[in-house]
């Protein structure tokens, strides 16, 4: 076996030339193309990133605005709710006050009505009582009663001062429930001292008793007036 050194050297030179030429023709241009494309892609990527960042910022803005709107809406809702609550409260208070006032007024009115009714009833009762009393009294014997009244009248006339008695004698009217007989007229005249110009009038409404009217004095002494007094008193008491 012999190693051909000429051939070895020639092959080495061949391969070296091939390395040199291929480096120039093949490896470097392709690598340069790869690098160029990578740079371009990188630029594109960075552009896209910029755009993405912009879009993100816009999105963030929109989101923020939306949140603000939502917050505003919530605040408005809250305030509206509060106002409504206040209004409702006020309305309710007002209504309650009104209702209370109404109830109060109704109570007062009811009291008034009850009072009026009670008064009315009392008055009617008084009236009824007086009428009953009048009717009861009317059933008594007029003469006996008139005698008693006459005695009282005489006593009352005798009890009057002289001056008044003199005034009585100057004329007047004596109203009686029943017609006064002569004895009765005589007793009155005796009591007055002399026979005055008295006119005798009969008025059954008196029930029993007398009313003596002169120019200045009216002397009531009858059941009618007593009943009137009682009725007045009862009504006042009511």
């Amino acid at each position: 076996m012999t190693l051909d050194f000429w051939g070895l050297g020639l092959q080495a030179v061949n391969v070296l030339i091939l390395v040199w030429l291929l480096t120039r023709v093949f490896w470097r241009p392709v690598a340069a193309a790869i690098v160029a494309r990578q740079t371009a892609a990188q630029a594109l990527l960075s552009d896209a990133e910029g755009t993405q960042a912009k879009a993100d910022a816009a999105l963030a803005e929109v989101t923020k605005a939306r949140e603000e709107i939502a917050a505003e809406r919530a605040a408005m809702l809250a305030s509206a709710a509060q106002e409504a609550e206040v209004a409702v409260q006020a309305k309710m208070a007002e209504a309650r006050a009104k209702a209370e006032a109404l109830v109060e007024a109704a109570k007062v009115a009811q009291g008034h009505a009850a009072e009026a009714a009670r008064k009315e009833q009392t008055r009617q009762a008084a009236t009824l009582a007086v009428e009953i009393a009048g009717k009861l009294l009317a059933r008594l014997d007029p003469n006996a009663v008139q005698g008693a009244f006459l005695a009282q009248l005489v006593a009352a006339v005798e009890g009057l001062p002289e001056q008044d008695r003199a005034a009585l004698t100057r004329g007047g009217t004596l109203v009686s429930a029943a017609a006064l007989d002569d004895a009765g007229q005589a007793r009155i005249a005796e009591a007055l001292g002399k026979m005055p110009g008295l006119t005798f009038v009969v008025d059954p409404a008196l029930i029993a008793g007398f009313v003596l009217r002169t120019q200045h004095v009216v002397l009531h002494d009858s059941w009618q007036s007593d009943l009137d007094h009682i009725l007045k008193d009862l009504r006042h008491a009511a």
Binding site: I17, L21, L22, V25, P29, V30, A32, A33, A40
Partner: peptide
């Protein structure tokens, strides 16, 4: 082989563009 490789490389890398 050298000729084939060189010619092939030359022919293939003649037009290198950005979009391959």
């Amino acid at each position: 082989i050298m000729a084939v490789l060189l010619l092939g490389a030359f022919a293939l890398t003649r037009r290198l563009t950005l979009t391959p």
